[in-house]
Design a protein around this nucleic acid. Structure first.
Lengths: 223, 223
DNA sequence: CGAATCCTTGACAAGATTCAACTCGGGTGG
DNA sequence: CCACCCGAGTTGAATCTTGTCAAGGATTCG
């Protein structure tokens, strides 16, 4: 199958839509159910993925099952960048999702794709470094505040409302992305709700009542 | 100053030396003392750095001074990749070091440099993701075991002895790279020494007595 | 040789985890 | 249609790992 990237799929792309539109490489699309494993850590790499709609989580496991979620991806986000020894993480859908697949092997030299991949990789690296600061040095409260702030900002950047924030992932997923337990995440959310910083009408929807305060808390301020 | 990259400076480069040698872009060299800040988080980016000799640490700070070290770099390693909003971290020498500077702005399109930068960035991203797993999910003991194992493997890859491992960084630096305190790092090292897994003839030199056990401990095995 | 810095060790405190019970909601089948 | 069941989430109590505070020892460098 060979076709130009459908612009509507990249309208909210993390990479420059104008650039993406110029690319015309072979790709295919797939409609995946929730909880579908796209590839596993260690699988030979060779494909790039672009999320047309839906949400994906990337994670790594320790031998005893402990899990670290590296990030959540949404419409317009790309993933699949890998080094020599295959994918460094497992990718799994959080909800029914549409993804575009690019065969990287065949199109490594496609004009423009290299540039996009580099830009995306650098952005991911910067995000990973920010997350290292969170995981290594922030308290549970700061971690949750950062998580909510970032998610809200990400949605806003795509033209979606900054509040309420929809949470397509479970408490367990949030915990594994912040280096906490389910119980701690739940307790902090309850605490923030009691303090009037956020609202929790239902478990998967967060109203950011004091957004600035939340952002301040994320960096260690606003106690 | 315009000159070919000196091959001897990249003999142990993390990027392919053959590729690096082909590049002939303007660059200059600098000899820096220990504890020298090369650039700060937020500084406008525009240069790439290659360590000719010595060691460098990269770190981020929270407003109250908490610090997360993102990584330690040694001879042949590159750094300075940055997104749009300047450098994402501060870079500081651990010891007297020689570095090569590449003006990225002028030479962004230099044939070959792009490819190297992409490869280096992907490798850094993979390393950052591995570190996220460590920071979020490993115990103090596993963190220290991983740190020592990795450092040993890195030195070995450069043709240096895998043991003893020299530690050019302080306990505080190790702690800030593992998301621990100085005291915890010191305690775990003492414990490993008592158990006969490592030797600590002096504070900045670690003998890996049970290297396989240490590697097993790093992933949660070998209790 | 002395001062400063770094490292180690101990006692205690605190933040987060573990274990367990309970609630809430949604889906299912009687 | 409604009761039941199951998974996800919340909350509580006890525990534990790691952090904090403090003191003592070692190493380096002027």
């Amino acid at each position: 199958m060979r076709a130009a990237l459908r612009p509507d799929l990249v309208a909210e792309a993390s990479c420059d839509p104008a650039e993406l539109r110029r690319i015309d490489v072979a790709h295919s699309q797939a409609k995946l159910p929730a909880g579908f494993t796209i590839f596993r850590e260690g699988d030979p790499a060779g494909r790039l993925y672009l999320i047309g709609s839906g949400a994906v989580k990337l994670y790594k496991l320790l031998s005893d099952g402990r899990r670290q979620i590296l990030g959540f991806l949404f419409t317009g986000d790309m993933f699949g960048m890998a080094g020599e020894s295959g994918y460094a993480y497992t990718a799994e859908t959080l909800m029914p999702s549409h993804v575009c697949l690019f065969s990287h092997g065949k199109h490594a030299s496609a004009a423009g794709l290299d540039r996009i991949m580099y830009a995306v990789t650098v952005r991911e690296l910067v995000a990973a470094q920010e997350q290292m600061l969170l995981l290594g040095r922030k308290t549970a409260r700061e971690k949750v505040a950062t998580f909510l702030s970032n998610l809200s900002a990400r949605f806003e950047r795509r033209g979606l409302p900054a509040s309420p924030v929809m949470l397509p992932m479970s408490r367990g997923d949030i915990a594994d992305s912040l280096g906490l337990t389910i119980e701690t995440v739940s307790r902090v959310l309850s605490q923030l709700k009691r303090e009037g910083v956020i609202g929790l009408p239902v478990a998967d929807q967060v109203v950011l009542i004091e957004r600035d305060l939340l952002a301040a808390m994320a960096d260690g301020g606003g106690e």
